[in-house]
């Protein structure tokens, strides 16, 4: 479904990704692991076309995403829930959700999709008229995920959704990611929370210093000594 082929990405003169390739199949949950600064966010920002690869290609269902401007990506069915939620703080929860469904089919199905989002996150329904900036961290993450869902994407990419949340909320968020996946959306998850994600994912990639160091199924990773030592601390 999504194919990233040998991309190099630079910020000005500074190269941060070297020959990164990964693949996400339809219906899968794929996790991108790695320490801070390993290039995880850069990778999915490149998929979203916010960054352009110096070399290599990003292909989604036959379309070269690296040739598409970033604001058009969502029309191809790729939604990106960015790191740090990035809600529109002075707009209400409801307005944030509306802005998630500006294009094409998502717009005509807006009210139905919103009911569905409120079903998944009843909390958001209670807070629908509140400015997004006044929500708690967990609620903001829910709103950000909800906003991503509003475009009815085929592929939903999450950038560290568990960041800064309490363990109970983290479990909640991952439960919802699995639920969304069961309803038919493909998920690409960027995480540092290794234990949780390896148990729920189909396949995983580890980035180290801008290169793919390891790839395999979640099961293989849990048995891998290097992963155990470096990321699970066992």
């Amino acid at each position: 479904m999504l194919q990233v082929d040998g991309i190099d990405v630079c910020y000005g003169d500074l190269q941060v990704l070297w020959d990164v390739s990964l693949r996400v199949g339809a219906g899968e949950i794929v996790v991108l692991l790695g320490a801070n600064g390993a290039g995880k966010t850069t990778t999915i920002k490149t998929v979203s076309s916010l960054l352009k690869p110096a070399k290599g290609t990003v292909t989604f269902q036959g379309t070269r995403l690296d040739a598409v401007p970033s604001h058009k990506i969502i029309e191809y069915g790729v939604a990106h829930v960015p790191e740090g939620r990035r809600l529109f703080p002075d707009m209400t929860v409801e307005e944030n959700l509306m802005v998630g469904s500006l294009r094409g089919e998502a717009k005509s199905r807006r009210s139905r999709t919103m009911d569905w989002v409120f079903e998944i996150f009843p909390r958001l329904k209670e807070r629908r008229r509140q400015p997004a900036g006044t929500l708690s961290g967990g609620e903001q993450q829910m709103a950000a995920i909800g906003r991503g869902l509003m475009s009815l994407p085929k592929l939903l990419m999450f950038d560290e959704p568990s960041l800064g949340l309490s363990p109970i909320l983290v479990a909640d968020i991952f439960r919802i990611v699995e639920l969304i996946n069961k309803q038919g959306m493909t998920v690409l998850l960027v995480e540092q929370n290794v234990k949780h994600t390896l148990n729920m994912c189909d396949r995983a990639y580890v980035l180290e210093n801008g290169r793919v160091a390891l790839s395999g199924t979640g099961r293989e990773f849990l048995d891998n000594d290097h992963v155990k030592e470096a990321y699970l601390g066992i």
Partner: peptide, 12 residues
């Protein structure tokens, strides 16, 4: 309020 997030929502 957030230019980059707006682009991700499909706003030119």
């Amino acid at each position: 309020q957030d230019n980059e997030a707006a682009q991700l929502m499909g706003i030119d």
